[in-house]
């Protein structure tokens, strides 16, 4: 049939058929369906990220290209290294405690009879569901310099009051505590899902082999949860490193800058201090650290996936 058609019509038909074939492919359809999201991410994530890289290469008045000048300036500042140290302490301590608490509570909830489990799950998720800016304000009132509810309780049992946000070490403790309170339910829910997917037969086999509860956790639960632990730790590490609201609301980085983390210091320098390029440089500093951590963790997960 095609042989009797004029040449141009045949080409057009072939082209049309080709387009139809491309459109029929699952990958094309998937791409088209994901396109709105890709555009959104491009506009709201990729463009701002590239723009902040551009900003980080400008001088304070944003008129001159200075290359890595802002970074070399930062590396000479004691306060910058203090912020690096504090960000690491804040993120690592908070993630460790969130993971531990999440792991323990997930076991507790997992062992609650199915009937009451939903209630526990709902209640334990509350800290994670409340917008952090709001819940942190409530914590601020609990730590309030003059009217701390905790100090009021301490006074009633004869304990001395604590300057929660006025003393550098207590202030660090307070911001980490609130971050753990807010983030632990995320670990809980992820670990609970992972626990539910561990086949019961493995525990039965371990029990037959005479394993105690610790050996069951060490040799069955943990290996089965390794991937989910890695992913949650990575995800939480990224989010905790980039935290802003908790520190901003509770201490604004004080006292004597001892609770500043990257995001709060970047805001202080960039927006409040009218030095946008330096602020952008501070906020970009964590990018390579997190990127390297992500590469290692994801490579490990991939390797285990391939082994499986």
């Amino acid at each position: 049939m095609a042989a009797v058609l004029p040449r141009s019509r045949a080409t057009a038909a072939a082209r049309g058929g080709g387009l139809r074939r491309v459109m029929r492919r699952k990958s094309t359809l998937a791409f088209l369906m994901a396109l709105p999201l890709i555009v959104l991410i491009g506009a709201l994530v990729v463009y701002p990220a590239l723009y902040s890289v551009h900003l980080a290469t400008l001088n304070k008045s944003m008129e001159r290209f200075v290359g890595f000048g802002n970074f070399t300036f930062l590396f000479k500042r004691d306060l910058f290294w203090m912020v690096v140290k504090q960000s690491v302490i804040f993120a690592v301590t908070a993630v460790v405690f969130k993971a531990l608490i999440g792991f323990c509570v997930a076991h507790f909830v997992h062992n609650v009879p199915a009937k009451g489990q939903r209630k526990w799950r709902g209640m334990l998720l509350i800290p994670w569901v409340i917008p952090p800016a709001m819940s942190t304000l409530a914590w601020f009132w609990l730590f309030d310099p003059s009217y701390s509810a905790f100090n009021w309780l301490f006074a009633h049992v004869g304990l001395p009051s604590i300057t929660w946000l006025g003393d550098p070490y207590w202030a660090r403790f307070s911001v980490i505590l609130v971050n753990v309170w807010y983030g632990a339910p995320f670990f809980l829910i992820m670990y609970l899902a992972a626990l539910k997917s561990v086949p019961e037969q493995l525990y039965e086999a371990a029990a037959i082999d005479g394993a105690n509860w610790w050996q069951k956790i060490w040799y069955v639960t943990l290996p089965m949860m390794r991937n989910i632990i890695s992913i949650t730790v990575l995800f939480s590490l990224i989010v905790t490193f980039a935290n802003f609201d908790i520190v901003r609301i509770l201490t604004s980085g004080g006292p004597i800058d001892q609770t500043h983390i990257f995001a709060t210091w970047a805001f202080k320098l960039g927006i409040e201090g009218n030095d946008i390029p330096l602020g952008a440089s501070v906020s970009l500093f964590m990018f390579p650290i997190l990127a390297i951590a992500a590469i290692f963790i994801l490579r490990d997960i991939n390797r285990r996936g391939n082994e499986a």
């Binding site: 309030d144 310099p145 003059s146 300057t163 946000l165 006025g166 003393d167 201490t251 604004s252």
Partner: peptide, 21 residues
């Protein structure tokens, strides 16, 4: 002065005097 003045923000001093303390 109160030990926590280093943690005061712009609302803390107001609350402090209004409370009567």
């Amino acid at each position: 002065m109160p030990r926590d003045v280093f943690a005061w923000d712009d609302a803390s001093n107001n609350k402090y005097i209004i409370s009567g303390q």
